[in-house]
Computed example of a mutant assay.
Amino acid sequence: MDDAIALTLLACFFLTSIALSRGKRFLSQQVKDFMLQRERASIFDTSTAADMRYLLVLVLQTCVLSGIVLFNHFYDSVPQLMSRVSPLLLLGIYIGSCLGYFLLKWLVYMFTGWIFFDKNKTSMWLESYSALIYYVGFALFPFVLFLIYFDLSPTNLIIIGIIILIFSKILMFYKWVKLFFHQFDQVFPLIVYFCALEIVPCLLLYRGMTLMNSILLLKI
Rank of each mutant, 00 (worst) to 15 (best):
77 S>P: 00
68 I>L: 15
92 G>K: 07
67 G>Y: 03
76 D>M: 11
89 L>R: 08
66 S>T: 09
87 P>Q: 01
89 L>P: 03
64 V>N: 02
67 G>N: 08
71 F>G: 07
83 S>K: 07
81 L>Y: 03
94 Y>I: 01
84 R>Y: 10
71 F>Q: 11
83 S>I: 04
93 I>T: 10
73 H>T: 12
73 H>D: 08
91 L>V: 03
67 G>P: 03
73 H>G: 13
90 L>P: 02
86 S>R: 03
83 S>W: 04
77 S>L: 12
72 N>C: 07
62 T>P: 00
70 L>E: 07
88 L>G: 05
78 V>N: 05
62 T>F: 07
68 I>N: 05
62 T>S: 14
65 L>A: 09
64 V>K: 01
81 L>C: 11
77 S>G: 05
86 S>Q: 03
76 D>I: 06
91 L>N: 05
86 S>K: 02
92 G>C: 09
89 L>A: 10
94 Y>Q: 02
82 M>Y: 14
81 L>E: 00
77 S>W: 14
90 L>T: 00
81 L>G: 03
69 V>C: 14
82 M>V: 10
71 F>Y: 15
78 V>C: 12
91 L>F: 06
75 Y>Q: 14
87 P>A: 01
64 V>P: 00
90 L>G: 00
75 Y>G: 08
80 Q>A: 10
63 C>G: 10
88 L>K: 06
77 S>F: 15
75 Y>C: 07
86 S>E: 07
68 I>S: 07
68 I>C: 06
69 V>W: 10
73 H>F: 15
86 S>L: 03
81 L>I: 10
86 S>A: 08
62 T>R: 04
69 V>K: 05
78 V>F: 14
85 V>D: 00
77 S>C: 10
82 M>A: 12
85 V>A: 00
78 V>L: 14
83 S>H: 09
68 I>Q: 03
73 H>K: 09
70 L>H: 02
72 N>M: 14
81 L>R: 04
85 V>E: 00
89 L>E: 06
73 H>Y: 15
68 I>T: 05
70 L>N: 05
69 V>G: 06
73 H>E: 09
70 L>G: 01
76 D>R: 14
79 P>T: 03
72 N>I: 08
79 P>V: 04
86 S>M: 00
74 F>K: 04
